[in-house]
């Protein structure tokens, strides 16, 4: 027992030192980046494994639609293989198969301007899915990531009725051979987790990592030195269905 406590204590010291280091690096890097070019600056959570996440951070993703390429599906494929959806054993059944993220092309009705963008859970600050969930299975983590606690999800699907983005899928059939860090099962609702297992491990979400067009930026919206915060300060960005006042964690640039 005492052994365990000692070792976690050590962890904490190491990581707080590391956090300082990263902050300094980020600051230096940020100063060096006049153009706001997208370099991964390691905006790290650097959270010891035994500590709870806090609202000191708010994770978000910025989508630059001007860089997102029509016909490219890299983020979607990366998400599917990371989390084990899409690679189902049965024949594809598009109406009932889960889709955590999808590529959508839209056209402005007035100007005919076309944009391609990925659409997934927008990780709202005030998520309607969590409001309507009878058991509290849908919830927002302190750091802003909206998740489904499948242990207490009863499969009523009210969250799917409530979501303005159709971001959620209901698992319509039995699933086997799940990925260890991405549990999924029949009769429960699921959606983009912002790759929470990666975020807790200081890594970027799979979609962000896979995007070869630098159209996706992941980071802490509350950290003014983070890449994402700087970009959002510099450029106009948009929330989808801003009229609903949900304060989404996923924002779009160039719409």
């Amino acid at each position: 027992m005492s052994k365990q406590i000692d070792s976690t204590h050590d962890d904490r010291q190491v990581s707080s030192g590391r956090r300082e280091f990263i902050k300094q690096t980020a600051a230096t890097a940020g100063a060096a980046l006049a153009s706001g070019a997208l370099l991964y600056t390691g905006e790290a959570s650097a959270k010891p494994a035994d500590e709870a996440v806090t609202s000191a951070q708010r994770w978000g993703i910025l989508v630059d639609t001007s860089k997102c390429a029509d016909g490219c599906n890299d983020c979607v494929n990366a998400c599917a293989s990371e989390n084990g959806w899409g690679s189902v054993e049965h024949d594809p059944r598009p109406k009932t198969d889960a889709q955590w993220i999808r590529s959508v092309t839209i056209r402005n009705k007035q100007t005919s301007a076309e944009h391609t963008l990925p659409l997934m859970c927008q990780h709202c600050e005030n998520p309607p899915c969590a409001d309507v969930c009878p058991t509290g299975a849908s919830f927002r983590r302190e750091d802003g990531i909206v998740l489904v606690d499948k242990h207490i999800c009863i499969g009523c699907r009210y969250c799917m009725m409530a979501c303005p983005y159709k971001a959620r899928s209901f698992v319509h059939e039995t699933i086997e051979n799940q990925i260890e860090y991405a549990p999924r099962g029949k009769g429960t609702v699921e959606a983009c987790t912002m790759c929470v297992h990666r975020v807790d491990d200081d890594r970027n979400p799979a979609c962000v990592e896979a995007c070869s067009h630098q159209a996706l930026t992941f980071g802490d919206l509350k950290d003014p030195n983070s890449d994402i915060a700087k970009q959002m300060k510099q450029h106009a960005t948009k929330e989808l269905r801003a009229d609903l006042g949900l304060n989404t964690g996923v924002r779009y640039k160039g719409l």
Binding site: V76, R102, I106, L119, Y165, K166, L240, R241, D243
Partner: peptide, 25 residues
């Protein structure tokens, strides 16, 4: 529910793999 969600007000959906913008069967 068959009536599509209006995720992008002012825009029409050109293509989507998840039935955005169309009447749901």
């Amino acid at each position: 529910q068959a009536y599509p969600l209006n995720v992008f007000p002012g825009y029409e959906v050109v293509s989507s793999s998840f039935f955005d913008g169309g009447v749901n069967a």
